[in-house]
Design a protein around this nucleic acid. Structure first.
Length: 589
DNA sequence: CGCTGCTGCGCG
DNA sequence: AAAGCGCGCAGCAGCG
């Protein structure tokens, strides 16, 4: 039996997933978990208060549950169990998230968008919008009927999405989807006192910054207009952009920051404010047991990478100390436990050479542990005996920059600006990179040719790029606009037409394959738990943070995890992986 | 007031 | 002919 299940809960501007995080939201004094809707493929359609439902109807060995956003609904059911509105002993064979499924198949996640794209059905969210700010008791009988109808509809469409597309949602992807949910609901351990101290430190920074900003009392502190006005007032020129990495802004800052304290103060204010918000979110989401559950969008990027969600993003915590505060270190193992932190070394350039079929480079990479030295030797730029990192740091740095950007078609102009070399030198380096890597430039051309011919295919203008893991990267409705190629991909919750060319497709493929390699490792680490318990508590694209059950198993776990991450998946024969692991009490760079 | 888009900044 | 890419969040500005 297949069971689609949806829940409706009170939400408002002040009480929401985004404000409190899922755990505190469901336990907020104003929370109301008022409706459950259940639709099965055997004809059952039910909606009402969860305590009135006969849960035994949908429990059993051969039952698959579905929800559109199972991460949410599973937490709601857990809360219903705490409240005595659902039985404690529910056993579920599999709980599939159809939002995750939509994302994995290359569509937007929301039920509305997914139904439009995958079923050709237009859904109205008017009822849901009107539910905002209302508890069940606040609704009149007519609106309650609307809500019940709406909730049943949601479950019907959730079921239909699965019935029509479920066969394309592979075991591999379902397992990752499930692993993501369980990881996030377990959460990460936090250093509560450390967070409080860090917040105080940053608030002092904010206060000091404000003292140095003349317009702080009358205008928005970060207003570009206010900053320009101040420049005019004191008689100095202003850059077009104030971005930290903008060369013009850098010059402006260098020239004037000594005479005008507000220049540095604005930057400090912006950064302190940003990070204090992160710390406050962490603080407010902390549970009694010292852990913080969090959200992660499985397949948040169209390439398959995870992305952050619901107010706090553990994928972009700053590295090292900023304004006297190390945000990462607030994620701290409790006494007696240890983190195993392990990442895939330079996964993307390795995948790039592998996809390009550059066997000569792959051989160098296998023999030389330092990827950049391997590249330097393969390209004939280095032939001495010693390790490059000991003998020529400057060359190694340059190779690193080349490997990072030039593999995806970056031009000389852009390279000059990001790597700080003269335009003529950038020109030479770009030419050199391309001449030394003919297989990579061929890959760009092949991918672009593929896209271009798809645009002209009268039967199917969707471009499908099969990946080694078995999944497919899809660009829909490819067309030629003004000579350039465009296609539809999911972006910001909806299908969006964007421009593409060989370099971009190449980068997307590399990112997607790197993601599959990484997730394959994660699944193998999860399997390790059967013999050596050390669950993953965080994933950051190519890095896992695992937590040992006790210090005694830390060395064993480190060895096992590093071994797993150095071993390519079955479907990636010949891909040379490297892994770097360490033990730590806290999350760090 | 709410929505959308942009900038700035953090990560891989 | 020429082109690095993928995200989220805070704050601000402009629009209706």
């Amino acid at each position: 039996m297949i069971v689609a299940l949806d829940t409706e809960t009170f939400y408002s501007d002040e009480v929401s997933l985004k404000v409190q995080g899922i755990y505190q939201y469901l336990r907020h004094p104003q929370a109301d978990l008022y409706l459950l809707s259940v639709v099965t493929d055997t004809g059952l359609e039910w909606a009402g208060h969860p305590k009135d439902f006969d849960w035994s109807q949908i429990v059993g060995e051969d039952v698959t549950w579905l929800s559109h956003n199972a991460a949410f609904d599973s937490m709601v059911v857990e809360r219903m169990q705490e409240l005595g509105h659902a039985p404690e002993d529910i056993v579920i064979k599999e709980w599939v998230c159809t939002a995750d499924m939509a994302a994995a198949l290359g569509y937007p996640r929301s039920l509305k968008e997914a139904c439009q794209q995958m079923l050709g059905v237009e859904l109205s969210k008017t009822v849901r919008d009107n539910m905002k700010g209302k508890r069940w008791g606040d609704m009149d009988i007519f609106f309650q009927q609307d809500v019940i109808k709406y909730a049943i509809d949601d479950s019907r469409y959730c079921l239909r999405l699965y019935q029509e597309h479920g066969d394309k949602f592979s075991k591999f992807e379902r397992d990752i989807s499930y692993l993501t949910r369980s990881m996030c609901s377990e959460g990460v351990p936090l250093d509560k006192e450390g967070i409080d101290r860090a917040i105080t430190t940053l608030q002092t920074e904010i206060w000091e910054a404000k003292i140095n900003i003349p317009w702080a009392d009358r205008e928005a502190i970060l207003s570009p207009g206010a900053i320009r006005d101040e420049c005019k007032k004191v008689g100095i020129w202003a850059p077009n952009s104030f971005a930290k990495d903008d060369p013009e802004a850098e010059k402006w800052e260098d020239e004037f920051h000594l005479q005008h304290a507000w220049i540095k103060a604005v930057r400090s204010y912006r950064r302190a404010n940003k990070h204090v918000a992160t710390l406050q979110a962490m603080r407010s989401r902390l549970r009694e047991d010292g852990t913080m559950p969090y959200s992660l969008k499985y397949f948040g990027a169209h390439t398959g990478r995870d992305s952050g969600d619901a107010g706090i993003n553990l994928q972009n915590l700053p590295k090292g100390e900023i304004l006297g505060v190390d945000v990462r270190s607030m994620i701290r193992a409790p006494k007696g436990k240890t983190f195993v932190i392990c990442d895939l070394a330079q996964i993307e350039p390795r995948v790039l050479h592998w996809l390009a079929g550059d066997t000569k480079m792959l051989q160098y990479i296998r023999e030389i542990p330092d990827l950049y030295e391997a590249q330097a030797r393969a390209w004939g730029l280095y032939s001495k005996d010693g390790a490059l990192k000991d003998t020529d740091k400057a060359l190694r740095h340059q190779i690193k920059q080349l490997a990072l950007g030039l593999g995806y078609g970056m031009g000389a102009k852009k390279f000059a600006s990001v790597s700080d070399v003269e335009p003529a030198e950038a020109e030479r380096l770009v030419k050199m990179y391309r001449s030394k890597n003919p297989l990579i430039t061929k890959l760009w051309r092949d991918l672009e040719d593929n896209l271009r011919s798809t645009a002209q295919d009268p039967n199917d203008t969707d471009a499908h790029f099969p990946l080694p893991s078995g999944r497919t990267l899809t660009y829909r409705k490819v067309s030629v606009d003004h000579g350039g190629l465009t296609a539809m991909i999911p972006r910001q919750g909806q299908m969006m037409r964007l421009g593409f060319w060989g370099g971009v497709i190449c980068e997307n493929l590399v990112q997607a394959v790197a993601r599959d390699v990484f997730m394959d490792c994660c699944l193998r680490i999860a399997k390790l738990n059967e013999t050596l318990y050390c669950p993953i508590i965080m994933r950051v694209h190519d890095e896992v943070v695992c937590q040992t059950i006790d210090d005694g198993t830390a060395d064993l776990a480190l060895e096992a995890i590093t071994h797993i991450m150095s071993t390519p998946p079955e479907w990636a024969e010949g891909l040379p992986l490297g892994a770097e692991g360490s033990l730590s009490q806290c999350y760090k760079k």
